[in-house]
Lab assay of single mutants.
Amino acid sequence: VTTYKLVINGKTLKGETTTKAVDAETAEKAFKQYANDNGVDGVWTYDDATKTFTVTEMV
């Protein structure tokens, strides 16, 4: 189990959260659900070296 981080660069919501998951795919599903629940829709990137997902909403 690995800890993954999500950085949110939203128009109205900004911040970070973490989740523990067995792999990046599982973490991504959890983060996308979290973003969807919070009304964040944007471009996703993932950095495997730092285990960090970033979602950026276009203005």
Score class of each variant (00 low, 15 high):
29 K>T: 10
59 V>I: 11
23 D>K: 04
13 L>K: 09
54 T>Y: 10
46 Y>N: 01
18 T>I: 08
32 K>L: 07
17 T>W: 15
25 E>H: 13
27 A>C: 02
44 W>S: 01
2 T>A: 10
44 W>R: 00
42 G>Q: 02
9 N>V: 15
13 L>C: 12
53 F>I: 02
28 E>A: 15
10 G>K: 04
54 T>P: 00
10 G>C: 12
23 D>C: 05
24 A>E: 08
59 V>Q: 13
9 N>Q: 10
46 Y>S: 01
45 T>Y: 07
24 A>C: 10
17 T>M: 13
46 Y>H: 02
19 T>A: 09
13 L>M: 13
49 A>I: 15
11 K>F: 15
7 V>H: 05
39 G>T: 04
4 Y>S: 00
13 L>E: 06
37 D>N: 14
58 M>W: 11
9 N>H: 10
59 V>R: 09
11 K>L: 14
7 V>M: 07
9 N>M: 13
49 A>T: 11
27 A>E: 00
50 T>S: 10
9 N>C: 11
20 K>P: 07
52 T>H: 02
38 N>M: 09
50 T>A: 08
15 G>V: 15
58 M>T: 14
8 I>M: 10
29 K>W: 09
33 Q>D: 06
58 M>V: 12
8 I>R: 01
11 K>C: 15
55 V>P: 00
3 T>P: 04
10 G>Y: 08
24 A>I: 12
31 F>W: 02
35 A>T: 06
21 A>T: 05
54 T>E: 04
57 E>L: 07
51 K>M: 08
34 Y>F: 09
6 L>I: 03
51 K>L: 11
45 T>I: 09
2 T>C: 11
47 D>N: 09
2 T>Q: 13
45 T>A: 09
42 G>N: 01
57 E>K: 03
48 D>Q: 12
43 V>Y: 08
7 V>Y: 11
5 K>C: 06
47 D>L: 04
1 V>E: 15
11 K>I: 12
42 G>T: 02
38 N>E: 08
35 A>Q: 02
43 V>G: 04
10 G>W: 06
13 L>W: 13
31 F>C: 02
19 T>V: 12
1 V>N: 13
13 L>Q: 08
30 A>V: 14
20 K>H: 14
48 D>I: 12
25 E>I: 12
47 D>S: 05
24 A>K: 14
15 G>F: 14
38 N>S: 08
14 K>N: 10
55 V>S: 02
46 Y>Q: 01
40 V>L: 10
7 V>G: 02
50 T>E: 05
42 G>S: 02
42 G>P: 01
50 T>Y: 05
32 K>C: 04
6 L>N: 01
51 K>F: 13
43 V>D: 07
40 V>D: 01
46 Y>A: 01
45 T>S: 12
41 D>F: 14
57 E>H: 05
12 T>C: 12
21 A>V: 04
20 K>Q: 14
26 T>R: 06
50 T>P: 02
16 E>V: 12
14 K>R: 12
39 G>N: 12
4 Y>C: 01
10 G>A: 11
22 V>R: 07
30 A>W: 15
48 D>P: 11
44 W>F: 04
17 T>Q: 10
53 F>C: 01
30 A>N: 09
41 D>E: 14
46 Y>F: 05
50 T>Q: 07
34 Y>A: 03
15 G>D: 12
24 A>H: 12
14 K>M: 10
39 G>F: 08
13 L>Y: 12
11 K>S: 09
18 T>M: 12
12 T>G: 09
13 L>R: 06
37 D>C: 09
44 W>E: 00
20 K>L: 15
18 T>G: 03
